[in-house]
Amino acid sequence: MPPGPTQLSGHRVAERLNAALPGVVVTATDEWVEVAPARLVDALRWLHDSSEFDAAQLSNCCAVDRHDRFEMVYHLQSLDLNHQIAIKATIADHEQPALPSAYAVYKGALLQEREVYDLMGIVFDGHPDLRRIFLWEGFPGHPLRKDFLGLGNLTPGLARFPFEDRDRPDRIMNPAPLRHDASARAQNEQDVPDDWRGAAPA
């Protein structure tokens, strides 16, 4: 993807960030900089305080489940210089994901990190009030994880798109659509394990 209209090149940010804090950058592309998760807060604080980047506002933060790891994405905004910086941190531990909290630098992380904790299950060390926010305490699992409630293939919609080439190797939208005749319903019910609540990750 081309970077956004006001987005800074990740290479440029990485170069300056690495000069100030050696070893903090893991990789960089045109769009983003990936930093070492243990030093995330140092990197954010340096970008926040530097006059060259002036990352005054945490515009957006969210997590992406990549099946074997989590990616946390931070979009930082400079209001005076009008540019945006995308910072990523990869959490290798998919079972017990944890990351330092950005709240020490940005108060705007307060609710956004609670949302990520609730829906993705990433624990933010140093967050002052880390509780679930949309779901209740005790809800089984974290719904935005890719492995949450693998209910067979009960997905809505058509099996494929009309007029589309059947042989395309891309992911099929709906490998087995939910049909409404009795035999298909019985089949679908068999696919759902009886203990599906217990099967969800805690």
């Binding site: 515009s59 957006n60 969210c62 994405v73 979009h75 609710l111 891309d170 992911r171 939208m173």
Partner: peptide, 26 residues
């Protein structure tokens, strides 16, 4: 804001809404 991640399929791999009235409550 909408943070969209595509994996090449017709549906987004990740679809995040940056909701202003939620974050304004910080």
């Amino acid at each position: 804001g909408f943070y969209l991640v595509s994996d090449g399929s017709p549906a987004p791999y990740r679809f995040h809404i940056r909701a202003p009235s939620f974050i304004n409550l910080s």
